[in-house]
Design a protein around this nucleic acid. Structure first.
Lengths: 113, 113
DNA sequence: CTATAGGGATAGGGTTTT
DNA sequence: TAAAACCCTATCCCTATA
């Protein structure tokens, strides 16, 4: 029995949230029947949508303002070994560049936990 | 606060093994409901059974083996924009690049101490 | 038969204790 | 440091109801 739990991807969550905005909470089959959202949710059943929506509402994902928790990068050291290191802006001018990375990682974190 | 941990007795382990032999791995509540095995496992919950079966190392269930570290890199593209790219092959599916990179980042963060 | 809501169970990662 | 026991919870299952 491998991989019983299929974690929701940010893409799927977005499709679900957009679907609920259009059809309303509880219209799971309707959302799946919509080509725009159903395509991204192909691997999910109407019950799956219901369960995920319940979890989103009870949890902290919500619509709150998100905070950056961490920025990481992978670098090669002198021995050619790859390692994960904290990545932060070198100076103020770099903040703009890292902003998009922050958002990217933040989306990953919030969808993960 | 002493004695928080209740070590499993040989009698309990035997009941668990016999129960799994009859009902199968994953049927924890079923095992507890069976008078033959549930009696010896009265002090254990279904989650306890799951946890014990896992650290008994039985089969492929609940392997604690660590996943291969996913690697990502932060790079500058031709326009000078910063972006995160996979540093190892991505298994292409219909989720697209975003979902794949997202997974890499999640695993990187998970492994990051 | 199809669909949703709600309660319950399981899988897998994380944490604590020995 | 390792291993056993325990905790957290996203995901999945069962079933009453319409």
């Amino acid at each position: 029995m491998g991989g019983r739990k299929k974690m929701w991807t940010p893409k799927e969550v977005t499709a679900l949230r957009d679907g609920v905005r259009k059809y309303g909470s509880g219209k799971w089959s309707g959302i799946l029947s919509d080509s725009k959202y159903g395509r991204a949710l192909k691997a999910r059943s109407n019950v799956d949508l219901k369960d995920k929506w319940r979890n989103l509402g009870a949890g902290t994902f919500g619509s709150r303002k998100k905070k950056v928790l961490a920025i990481v990068a992978v670098a090669n050291d002198n021995d050619g070994e790859q390692e994960i290191v904290p990545a932060s802006p070198v100076n103020d001018d770099d903040e703009g560049l890292f902003a998009s990375v922050d958002t990217f990682i933040l989306e990953a974190i919030t969808s993960w936990k």
